[in-house]
C-alpha cells in the first residue's frame, strides 16, 4: 500500500513539473476545446431551432448550449487523459519506462497514478466551466446542492479509470497515433457529446455502448439538466459501475499479458 502511495505521489510530482508550465496545456485543454465548442454550436445554426424543431424530442432548443457545454466538459476530461497517455508512449520510446518496470511497483498503481495526476492538472478548467455554466447558461435544473459534487465525482472517477485503460494500451502499442485516431473522434460522435445518443440509429447506439463516456455523460445530464434524484439515477449509476469494473479488469489483463510478452521476447510492443 505504501508503495502505491509513494508511486502515486512521485507520478503526481513528475506530471506537475512536466505539464504545468507548458503552453501545451493552455492550448490543448482550453483554447482548442473552446473554439471546438463554439464551432459545434454554430454547426447547429443551419437547422431549424424554433419550438417545432424535431430536436425538441431530445433537447429543448434553448437548452442546447447547456447540452453542448456538459458534453464538451466531460469530453475534455476524457480527452486530457488521451493526451497524457500519448506522452506515455514517448516515454516508452525514450526508455524511461523500462526503468520503471525494473522496480517492484504495482503496475495498476502506475497507470492510475498517472491518470489521476494528469487529471488533477486540469481541475482548474473544470471550475472555469462550472462557473460558466452557473452564471451564463440557461436551463440548469438540479435536485439539490449535492448534484454538482456528485456529478463531478462521477466524472472524475470514470475519467481516471478510462485514463488508466488508455495508459495500459498506449504502453504496449507500437503506433499510439493509430489508437488515438480510432478512439478520439468516434468518442466525440458516438458518446453523445454533440448530438443526443437517443437520436442515433440502432447500430450507432450499439457503438455508443463501447464508450464509457456515454454512460457518464448520460448521468451527468440527468443530474444537472433534468433535476434527477439519486433514486432516479441509480439504475444508470449501477450500469456505469459495472462498465468501469469491466474496464479495470481489461486494463489489468492487458498489462499482465504485455509483461509476460516482454519477459518472453524482450519487447514491450504487444500490438
Amino acid at each position: 500500500m505504501i508503495g502505491w502511495i509513494r508511486l502515486f505521489l512521485a507520478e503526481l510530482k513528475k506530471e506537475h513539473r512536466n505539464m504545468f508550465h507548458s503552453r501545451l496545456v493552455y492550448f490543448s485543454l482550453l483554447i482548442w476545446p473552446v473554439i471546438g465548442f463554439i464551432t459545434s454550436y454554430y454547426s447547429f445554426k443551419p437547422f431549424s431551432l424554433n419550438d417545432n424543431s424535431p430536436i425538441t424530442r431530445f433537447v429543448p432548443p434553448d437548452h442546447l448550449v447547456l447540452f453542448l457545454l456538459t458534453g464538451y466538459l466531460a469530453y475534455l476530461f476524457f480527452w486530457s487523459l488521451v493526451q497524457s497517455a500519448w506522452q506515455m508512449g514517448y516515454e516508452r520510446q525514450s526508455g524511461t519506462l523500462e526503468m520503471i518496470f525494473l522496480t517492484p511497483v504495482h503496475r495498476l498503481a502506475l497507470i492510475y497514478g498517472r491518470s489521476f495526476s494528469s487529471l488533477l492538472e486540469s481541475v482548474w478548467l473544470f471550475f472555469t466551466f462550472v462557473i460558466m455554466i452557473l452564471f451564463i447558461v440557461e436551463g440548469i435544473q438540479v435536485d439539490g446542492w449535492w448534484s454538482f459534487p456528485f456529478a463531478f465525482f462521477i466524472l472524475f472517477i470514470s475519467a481516471v479509470i478510462w485514463g488508466g485503460f488508455l495508459n495500459a494500451i498506449f504502453l504496449f502499442s507500437r503506433d499510439a497515433g493509430f489508437f488515438y485516431t480510432i478512439l478520439d473522434e468516434p468518442m466525440l460522435i458516438f458518446s453523445g457529446v454533440r448530438i443526443p445518443p437517443l437520436a442515433f440509429p440502432i447500430w450507432a447506439k450499439g457503438l455508443a455502448l463501447f464508450f464509457p463516456l456515454t454512460y457518464t455523460l448520460h448521468i451527468i445530464r440527468m443530474l444537472v439538466m433534468e433535476a434527477a434524484t439519486f433514486i432516479e439515477i441509480l439504475p444508470s449509476f449501477t450500469v456505469l459501475l459495472v462498465v468501469l469494473l469491466v474496464l479495470i479488469n481489461i486494463s489489468a489483463f492487458v498489462i499482465k499479458k504485455a509483461e509476460n510478452h516482454m519477459k518472453q521476447t524482450g519487447s514491450m510492443v504487444l500490438f
Partner: peptide, 27 residues
C-alpha cells in the same frame, strides 16, 4: 488514415445531425 478518418467523421457527423436529429428541417 487520420486525415481520411477526420474527413469521414465530419461527413458522418453532418449526416447524423441532419438525418436523425433534425430530420432534414433547415433554418
Amino acid at each position: 488514415l487520420s486525415h481520411i478518418l477526420s474527413g469521414i467523421y465530419t461527413v458522418l457527423f453532418a449526416y447524423f445531425t441532419y438525418t436523425y436529429v433534425f430530420e432534414g428541417v433547415l433554418d
